[in-house]
Amino acid sequence: MTRALVGDIGGTNARFALWQDNALASVQVLATADYPSPEQAITAYLASLDLAPGAIDAVCLACAGPVGGDLFRFTNNHWQLSRRAFCETLQVRELLLINDFSAMALGMTRLTPEDCLQVCPGEAEVERPRVIIGPGTGLGVGTLLPLASGHWQALPGEGGHVDLPIGTAHEAALWLQLEQQLGHVRAEDVLSGSGLVNLHRALCALEGQAPRWHEPADVTAAALAGDAQGLAVLEQFCRWLGRVAGNNVLTLGGRGGVYLVGGVLPRVAPLLLASGFAEAFRDKGCMSDYLAGIPVWLVTAEYPGLLGAGVALQQARS
Rank of each mutant, 00 (worst) to 15 (best):
P36L: 05
Q209D: 10
P266G: 05
D100C: 06
A58Q: 13
L231C: 11
G183R: 06
Q315I: 05
E302Y: 04
H170D: 08
T12A: 02
A210Y: 09
A172D: 08
V219R: 05
C60D: 07
E123G: 03
G107R: 14
G308L: 02
A64L: 12
A172E: 13
A55R: 04
C63T: 13
D283K: 01
V162D: 12
G193Q: 14
L90C: 08
H200C: 15
F277Q: 02
C63W: 09
A62K: 11
L241G: 02
N248H: 13
G140P: 02
V190Q: 10
V268K: 03
L273V: 10
Q180M: 05
L252Q: 11
Y45D: 07
L18G: 10
Q40C: 06
Y45G: 02
D163L: 11
H78V: 06
V299R: 15
V29F: 00
P121C: 03
A17Y: 05
D283W: 03
A187K: 05
G183Q: 04
Q80C: 00
F16R: 03
L145V: 06
D115H: 15
Q315W: 02
Q236P: 00
C120Q: 14
V299Q: 10
L111E: 07
V311N: 08
A221I: 12
L5M: 08
A105N: 09
R282C: 15
G310M: 02
D100N: 03
G256W: 07
L178P: 10
D8V: 09
T12F: 09
H161A: 14
P66R: 11
A58M: 09
A278N: 00
V264N: 05
A154N: 04
R243G: 00
L206K: 06
T143R: 09
R212K: 08
A232C: 04
G246I: 00
A25K: 06
T43C: 13
F86G: 08
G107Q: 07
D100E: 06
G285D: 01
L18C: 12
F237G: 02
I56G: 13
A4F: 09
A52T: 15
C286D: 03
L96G: 03
L291Q: 04
N22A: 09
G256P: 09
I133C: 04
C204Q: 00
P211G: 14
L49Q: 03
N99C: 04
R243N: 05
S288I: 01
N13C: 03
R128Q: 15
E127F: 14
S48N: 15
N22L: 02
L176M: 08
E179N: 13
C204N: 02
Y259V: 00
W297E: 14
A41Y: 04
D8M: 13
R15F: 01
Q236M: 12
M104D: 11
L106N: 08
M104S: 13
D283G: 01
L71S: 11
L265E: 03
R212E: 10
V268I: 15
T143C: 13
V219Q: 01
A148Y: 12
S102W: 02
A274Q: 14
C60N: 01
Q315P: 05
R212D: 06
F72T: 04
